[in-house]
Amino acid sequence: MAQKFEEQAQVRKQMQIADNIFDLTLQTQEIAKHAKAGQFVSLYCKDGARLLPRPISLCGIDQKEGTIRLVYRVAGKGTKEFSGLKEGDTVSVLGPLGNGFSLRNGRAFLIGGGIGIPPMLQLAKECSEKQIILGYRSEPFLLEEFQEQGEVFVATEDGSAGTKGTVLDAIRENGLTADVIYACGPTPMLRALKAFAAERGMECYLSLEERMACGIGACLACVCQTKEKDAHTNVNNRRICKEGPVFDAREVEL
C-alpha cells in the first residue's frame, strides 16, 4: 500500500501565472519523495468554518528538493485562502493520494483541458513518445513549459490561439494519431475522449473529479459508476480518491 503523509508543508513560493490561476510550490518532508504523476494532495483551510480538504493535483514533483508544485484556479473561498499564502507560510497537506498515471507502451496523447492541464505537466516529463494537446477557454497558461517537453497542439474555445474548438478538433485538424490517451479535464471532454478512444481502438486513461470529504477512501462521497462490480464496494461504484482518480475509460461510466 502506498504510504500517505499528513504534513505542515512550508510555502517555498507562490505566484499568479494567469487570470485567477496560481502556481504554488510547497516544501514537504515525505510527500514529494513518495509521489507520482497523476496523484493529488488534500489541502486544508485555516478557517475553521471550512471543514473539508481541497483536492489539488500534483503539477510537479521534485524528489531531490522534496517539493511539490500545485497549479490551481481560484474557484471559491478555499482556493481564495490558498492564493494568499506567502513564502514561509505553512499549510496542512495530506498526500500523496490516489493512484496516479501508469505509463503504457506506445505513442501517447497527453491531453489536458482547462484546470485539468497542470497534472499533465509532470506526466509529460516522464513520458517519452508523446504529443501534447491542451484545451483552453482562452488565455493559455503553462504553455512554454509544455513546449519544453515536446510537441504541443493547442485548442481554444474562442479561437484566440491554435485550433478553434476542443482538443478533439485539434487532433482531427492536425491528423494526429497515437496508441494511448492520458487525459485530465472537464467531464464533457473526458466523455468525448472515451468515445473517441473506443472508436479508434485506443487505450485511454482518464483522471476524474468528484466532490470529496475524507480524500482517503473512507466516506464513499467521491464515487464514479463502474461497468463491473467493484471489488471493494461490492456495487458498481468505485472510489475516485482511492482507486482513482485515473481510470481505464472502459471501466467507468461517464
Binding site: L51, A213, L220, A221, V223, V235, N237
Partner: peptide, 24 residues
C-alpha cells in the same frame, strides 16, 4: 449491497457539511 445515491454526495456549508451518500 446498496448502490447509494448519485453524485455529488457531499457539500460544504459554513461550519458544517451536507451528505447524501445514501448508505452505500
Amino acid at each position: 449491497p446498496w448502490q447509494g445515491n448519485p453524485t455529488p454526495r457531499v457539500a460544504e456549508v459554513y461550519g458544517g457539511m451536507l451528505n447524501a451518500v445514501g448508505l452505500q
